[in-house]
Amino acid sequence: MIETRGLRKSFRSRAGRETKTVDAVRGVNLEVAEGEIFGFLGPNGAGKTTTLRMLATLIEPDGGEATIAGADLRKDPAEVRRRIGYVAQGGSTWDESTAREELVLHARLYGISKAEAHRRATRALDAFQLSEYADRKCKTYSGGQRRRVDIALGIIHEPKIVFLDEPTTGLDPQSRAHMWDEIRRLRTEGMTVFITTHYLDEADALCDRIAIMDHGEVVAEGTPAELKREISGEVLLVGLDAASTPRAAELLDTEGYVTKLETVDEGGLRLYVDEGATAIPQVLRRLDGAGLDLRSVELHRPSLDDVFLTKTGRSLRES
């Protein structure tokens, strides 16, 4: 659905007399499949918005190519515009307009007839639970309501792909959960959704696949589960008394699913395994069969933050 090769963008900015060049995006290669929720995870200034704005034809890339919904970004930006929707990070509604007016006009800018635009506006207002406020000026909306109008605007023309730049930033937990549902609903309607976020839990819970971005580069890409596994697999903390620990270590060391085994000082083992869920029953069987007294098994899953940490040497939480 989206394919990019070596997408680049630098900005020149003037600070006093000096001109500085910021390499905002330095060669991004991505592949996004049809019907998935693809997440762009990265700290402030990673280049997420810049990449999205390039893909949405708002700024011209300095280098590289991209195909979006079958249209070539460089050769046919007009066709790209017809096939995508884009919701900016900073919002897009005018204080003095009403949600309905914005939706109708926006639909009409895509060439949709007046009657159809009104129908779609009504439908979108319903779907996003905005009907109650539809004819009130946007300046009277809450942040969450306003954000929902932004999203409704982005999909009013039923695009194949929608780009959502930080759709949940600034929302309270409840509105965020709502927004996640809305975004999942878009996927069920067959839309490909490309979101950016700097929330780990959001990338984890919402996205089918993610790319982690840092300093203008994609440092890792895959499903959240893959990424976490790729880094360190999972860790099983096996609780044993000190006496049976050596024997258990001996038994488990030869098992194929254990990539690494460490003995814990006070007794017990730390097993590095590919997939904890399948390893647990095997460990239980093995130790039980040998008549060893097992106290506890604890599964420690690495988070996306661990992924980010190993790839960049920094924690996303801190940056």
């Binding site: 034809t57 708002l58 007009a78 929707g85 884009y86 900016a88 800018l109 895509y110 023309h157």
Partner: peptide, 9 residues
């Protein structure tokens, strides 16, 4: 508002 207009055709 301008950016939103500019993503449409």
């Amino acid at each position: 508002v301008i950016e939103r207009s500019r993503v449409t055709p």
